[in-house]
Write a protein that binds this DNA or RNA. Structure first.
Lengths: 247, 247
DNA sequence: GGCACTTTGTGCGCGTATTCACAAAGGCTT
DNA sequence: AAGCCTTTGTGAATACGCGCACAAAGTGCC
């Protein structure tokens, strides 16, 4: 089985940065650029941690993985830190992105400013729907997915963003991987199966809502409110799933 | 400090389900409904785990938190499991959602089928832009954010989806929280500060791309490629990787 | 130059998550 | 009914992440 949605990237004992830290670096970076725009030159771990919504010890430990870029008694130089984090994340180079699937979501992604501002260049919009192909969106012309391999090769696409319907996602994924892409950002509500060496990150709107609903249910009725599975609780399929008792 | 983006919900030693498990339940649920549609009646932990992209032992342990709903030697009854997970997640009741910010992303969210299909009803679309207010989107008329409190009260909104520009997000968040909403799904690229008891989940497209870029860089150049901060490596001072301004 | 103050970097303990591996449990065949 | 085969549920070991608390290091005042 080749599916590895959640690969641990730190198998090697090299100077690997913990995955949890990597996930927070972009948050720090955003907070730092905000400070930079306001002309702040140095910042303490306490201040930056507050801006990023994390514990200050965690922030310091995270930054320590990049090397020692702070000055005791003073704090961190904002500009320097911005540079170091950008470099670590690979944002000092440009990344070429293709968006496959130009429905509502794909359109929103194509117009999303947060991409371009961080060194991500959208080099292609592709869709299988003839009615959409040829449309001009955010200054780009939508191409047919038949040309997927060409677009990837011609522009040197290294990251594919999949925003197709669920049914088409795995097929598209297989094709982009075959074309050499090793990083995929998946918005389709399916678990993609990819070979080793390919990274998939998933963004799933509906899952986030379901997690919120779980906690909301907890809050609403208290820990014991759990619709106690009364008789009117109509389980699916007529089968009475009553007396769900747990240890 | 009130910011608690990452609250641990299991402070109480009650029958709490681990957060990591909660986050996976929606994935299992999706895989199960897929099986259900294909007429599969029972499924083993091995099969379901493969479909969900996780380890089978983890799946079994996750499900064990809901109680013991499997049959040794056979597996799990799909329909039964769908019901139990749905109930646990609170999907057997309807959740009323309001979307604030009807730009590209808000529009995509309004039209996203994955909401309605899981018991999430979008009861309001709101925007501060007069040019957008009044537009009909996905069968709903966009209202002005001035009416935010009214919409929340009138429809009994319990989950707010914030899809505004970054600068407006905290203000909107404060208002929905003041109006009684305790669950927020945030798409704006800012860290929201909320009082205790309010849950915030964040979806950030640009962060996901940055994480991919980090790993892509690793793969591309090997572990030692790190542009070793050579002389031409633009030390802080000549800032060019700045700009920002998202959403 | 010395001293008091600030802030970083990190050792350590704790709780959580993941995975293995196996005994217990149920079904099916003969 | 007995025995074999499959699959669950979970104890135990390991890995990981978090946050406290403090020593080390640097600044700036006097």
């Amino acid at each position: 089985m080749t599916s590895r949605q959640n690969r641990n990237h730190r198998d090697r004992a090299d100077r690997g940065i913990p995955e949890a830290t990597v996930a927070r670096l972009p948050v720090y970076l955003r907070a730092l650029t905000g400070l930079q725009e306001r002309g702040v030159a140095t910042v303490s771990s306490e201040e930056l941690a507050a801006a990023a919504g994390v514990n200050s010890a965690k922030l310091r430990k995270d930054l320590s993985h990049l090397g020692s870029y702070g000055t005791r008694g003073v704090g961190y130089e904002v500009e320097y830190l911005v540079y170091q984090i950008s470099r670590e994340l690979g944002l000092t180079q440009d990344w070429v992105v293709a968006i496959i699937g130009v429905g509502n979501l794909g359109r929103a992604l194509a117009g999303y400013g947060g991409f371009a501002s961080r060194g991500f260049r959208v080099a292609g919009l592709l869709d299988a729907d003839e009615a959409i192909v040829g449309q001009e969106i955010s200054g780009m012309t939508v191409e047919h997915t038949d040309r997927l391999e060409d677009v990837i090769a011609d522009h040197g696409v290294s990251i594919a963003v999949i925003a197709t319907p669920a049914a088409a996602a795995q097929g598209v994924c297989d094709r982009v991987v075959a074309a050499g892409v090793t990083s995929v950002l998946n918005f389709a509500p399916v678990v993609l199966s990819v070979p080793d060496g390919v990274d998939v990150r998933k963004v799933d709107l509906s899952i986030e809502l379901q997690i919120l609903a779980f906690h909301e249910q907890r809050k609403a009725g208290g820990p014991d409110d759990y619709a106690p599975l009364a008789s009117g609780d109509a389980p699916p399929g007529a089968t009475q799933y009553v007396e769900a008792v747990e240890a």
